[in-house]
Write a protein that binds this DNA or RNA. Structure first.
Length: 582
RNA sequence: GCGCCCGUAGCUCAGCUGGAUAGAGCAUCGGACUUCGAAUCCGAGGGUCGUAGGUUCGAAUCCUUCCGGGCGCGCCA
């Protein structure tokens, strides 16, 4: 489906080729929304080097060659050489009608779909998901949805911390508890981990058992593996509960953690050694990707086998990147991991290139993000000082959202207006809480830290998740009333400025989705959503729908219906629900 | 010491990869409900874009200096 910009861009390309010859084919006409017109083209300025003309001359020539009589009311030159385009209402109406009849709402499919691996969330077994996992989990999930929407094959990968020396003590502690809890529940995972750790640090006999247990685990002892698996399953149940509540699309089958790669580590070391990329250094085997200098100017190593013969995270990361490229066939790998790991990841990519696994067009990208801070400006912690679990966070959010939703509902009910039913309050509060948390996280640039603030994110006014949901709920309210009255959407006509603004905002949805897919920046979707929602609110204020004349009513209903769908879809791509009432 | 990230209105942030007078939200002030959800809308005030240079028709955006904040740099992940 061709959007307004697509169609205009084609006409510009033709005009540019007419004036300046075929070498201008494919040149960017720099079409942007404008304060001075509906759209503007900066091509005469931006292409100055290629046209050789001064911008105002170029603008005049382009206008002369531009065949847009069917699309624009007028095109005028302005300032140093801008081209201001004033679109015909009929042109806007037609493209909007096409978008409205499109299942994909104007989101084009990628011309070259890729296999994209998205590595996100990645919690540790026997610990609960906590605030530190929030950003990776929700950003990764949103990007996975967006990349999928534009037609890529997306493979989610949960790089679980499910192997290694801590499992000795965890299994022994698990066995100690066996009598009390049976084999069904560990209970509080964090408490479980803490207790195991405490025993390990204070009881030498226990520590000794733990060490022996690690050996058994590494050696593949059947009974030990069974215990290990129970721990893993128990933890996955806990992750599942959080993912479900947060609306995360990661499935159990997407798990490919350290245990999955463990059998491959020896081979990785051998391969890199055989290729001459890994060398012995201070008793360890290391890869030294060029260009990384440490404290005394020494090269920084990726330690792929430790002095004691064990393997660390670098080896697992290398095994994982090889697997993703060679076995999963990824051409794009996203690491949704905190910003501090930037150097480590670049070293992994470099090593993977040297090994011949990572080569164009395949590429790996670090989707870096900053920290979630508490009101004190430090990492988010609970009163007790440990990191707050995601479940606690979500529960608190729902509680706070419920208070807001309940209050609004009772206000409306006492005013005799349609309100959320008592039985639906919980589910609406849930949707509001999740939207508040996610939208607050997404709405600013990923790489920056942000302060977690309930009052800000849950505010019913301003640029918040709840505001967007409210805008959507209002669209649904009109549509319900229209349906009850037997009114149906019809031919779109654009006359009022608010109709035009709304249609133009709707029309850029597809481009925004692709922009997010390319830039991996969810905040661009938020900027768009807020603009769309506020444009709709202005439309609402200025353009009566149900009380308009039949033709106008049908047209406006079509705009409202499309707005509802776009809001819902855009929120959905961020993993945010759009309730019909709130 | 080396390297990476950040610095835009009182506060929280955008700014579409170099384009027109730097835009929003919150807060403040002033308007709009006997029209579909006022959780809304309309309007006002408020910024030497950390600093000093440079590149050019044109810089918040690109290059360099310095200042301030965060983070990383060998056996944790």
């Amino acid at each position: 489906m061709a959007s307004i910009v697509d169609i205009l861009a084609q006409r510009f390309e033709r005009a540019l080729v007419t004036v300046y010859g075929p070498e201008l084919k494919g040149a960017d006409p720099m079409l942007r929304r404008s304060d001075h017109a509906d759209f503007q083209s900066n091509a005469p300025l931006s292409l100055k080097k290629r046209t050789g003309d001064n911008p105002r001359d170029a603008a005049a020539k382009i206008i002369a060659a531009l065949d847009v009589a069917d699309l624009c009311e007028r095109v005028e030159m302005s300032g140093p050489g801008f081209l201001n385009l004033h679109l015909k209402g009929s042109f806007i109406a037609e493209t909007t009608a096409v978008q409205a009849s499109d299942e994909r709402l104007g989101i084009a499919l990628a011309s070259t779909p890729e296999t994209v691996v998205v590595d996100y969330s990645s919690p540790n077994i026997a610990k609960e998901l906590h605030a530190g996992h929030l950003r990776s989990t929700i950003i990764g999930d949103a990007l996975a949805r967006v990349l999928e929407q534009v037609g890529n094959k997306v493979i989610r990968q949960n790089h679980l911390g499910d192997w290694g020396t801590p499992f000795g003590m965890l299994i022994e502690h698990y066995l100690d508890l066996g009598e009390q809890v049976g084999d069904t529940a560990i209970g509080d995972l964090n408490e479980f981990y803490r207790a195991a750790r405490a025993k390990f640090d204070t009881a030498p006999a226990f520590a000794e058992r733990a060490r022996k247990r690690v050996v058994l685990l590494q050696g593949g002892d059947e009974a030990t593996l069974q215990f290990w698996k129970r721990l893993v399953d128990e933890s996955k149940r806990s992750f599942r509960a959080v993912y479900d509540k947060l609306g995360i699309t990661m499935k159990d089958s997407d798990a490919a953690g350290e245990s999955f790669f463990n059998p491959r580590l020896e081979g990785i070391v051998k391969e890199l050694t055989d290729k001459g990329l890994a060398v012995e250094s201070e008793g360890a085997i290391c890869v030294f990707p060029p260009g990384f200098k440490g404290k005394e100017g020494n090269p920084v190593p990726l330690i792929i086998r430790k002095q004691d013969g064990g393997y660390g995270y670098a080896t697992t990361d290398l095994a994982a990147i090889k697997y993703r490229l060679l076995e999963l066939g990824a051409t794009r790998i996203l690491y949704v991991v905190g910003a501090p790991q930037a150097q480590h990841l670049t070293m992994i990519y470099k090593a993977a290139e040297m090994a011949g696994w990572l080569k164009p067009p395949a590429r790996a990208q670090h989707v870096a993000f900053g920290s979630v801070l508490g009101e004190d400006g430090k990492m988010l912690k609970s009163r007790a000082g440990d990191s707050v679990t995601l479940m606690e966070l979500l529960d608190e959010g729902e509680e706070r959202a419920l208070a807001v939703v309940r209050e609004k509902a009772s206000e409306r009910a006492s005013a005799g207006e349609e309100a959320v039913a008592e039985g639906d309050l919980q589910s609406v509060a849930h949707a509001v809480a999740i939207s508040a948390i996610k939208y607050a996280d997404f709405s600013a640039d990923r790489v920056k830290d942000y302060v977690f603030s309930w009052s800000r994110m849950l505010a019913t006014i301003g640029n918040t998740g709840p505001y967007l949901q409210y805008a959507h709920a209002r669209t649904r309210s009109i549509l319900r009333k229209a349906e009850a009255a037997g009114y149906t959407p019809g031919t779109i006509t654009i006359t009022a400025p608010e109709e035009k603004a709304l249609a133009l905002a709707l029309g850029s949805f597809g481009a925004v989705v692709h922009d997010v897919a390319a830039s991996l920046e969810p905040h661009r979707m938020c900027t768009y959503l807020y603009e769309l929602a506020s444009t709709f609110s202005s439309f609402w204020n200025a353009c009566p729908v149900l009380k308009a004349e039949p033709a106008e009513r049908a047209s406006r209903l079509a705009l409202v219906e499309l707005t509802a769908k776009v809001l819902e879809r855009a929120l959905g791509l961020l993993g945010i629900e759009a309730p019909a009432r709130m």
